[in-house]
């Protein structure tokens, strides 16, 4: 089947999509956007988190056909050209990235949290990111990164 969507502000069309494919597969293997990650493909780890019409979803749980005529933003669409989004910049600076496989999903989830709640408390950060598994960091520096991003976004 043919899928037409808007991805990171660009209209995209892909053909010959097998109806069983997920949005994650289409992004990664058909659109050349492998930033969204395939850690579990079961909706448990959050590594494939993308915005679907401004709502964060696990792209692995969205059938490709459901993306028809929808607006998708992936981790590749968050930076402004060469300028990283503050959430991205703060993940790098805080040392919140080790292997980085969880990072794209966490960046999108944290981006969404700070859009909803610019000054989240620690329990709010924890609750918002509870659907994103990280195996390397023990999450301490991820908390640091989100706190830092909140501060930085408040002062700019």
């Amino acid at each position: 089947m043919r899928i037409t969507t808007t991805v990171n502000g660009e209209s995209r069309q892909v053909d010959d999509v097998w109806p069983g494919e997920s949005l994650l597969y289409v992004l990664r293997e058909r659109m050349g956007l492998p930033g969204s990650k395939n850690a579990c493909e079961q909706g448990e780890c959050g590594s494939c988190t993308v915005y679907l019409d401004n709502v964060p979803v696990c792209a692995c749980l969205v059938a490709a056909g459901q993306a028809q005529d929808r607006d998708i933003t992936t981790v590749e669409g968050l930076a402004d050209g060469e300028d990283l989004h503050p959430v991205q910049q703060c993940f790098v600076e805080a040392g919140a990235v080790q292997c980085g496989f969880c990072t794209p999903g966490l960046i999108v989830a944290a981006h969404d949290l700070l859009a909803r709640e610019p000054q989240p408390s620690d329990p709010e950060i924890r609750e918002a990111l509870a659907g994103n598994l990280c195996r390397c960091t023990g999450y301490e520096k991820i908390l640091d990164a989100v706190r830092l991003a909140a501060d930085r976004m408040a002062t700019t």
Binding site: P34, A79, L84
Partner: peptide, 16 residues
Amino acid sequence: GVQKVTGEFAYSSDLW
């Protein structure tokens, strides 16, 4: 780090 936060870092499952 920058490649990893922008989704550009090529993991073994990203190769094409």
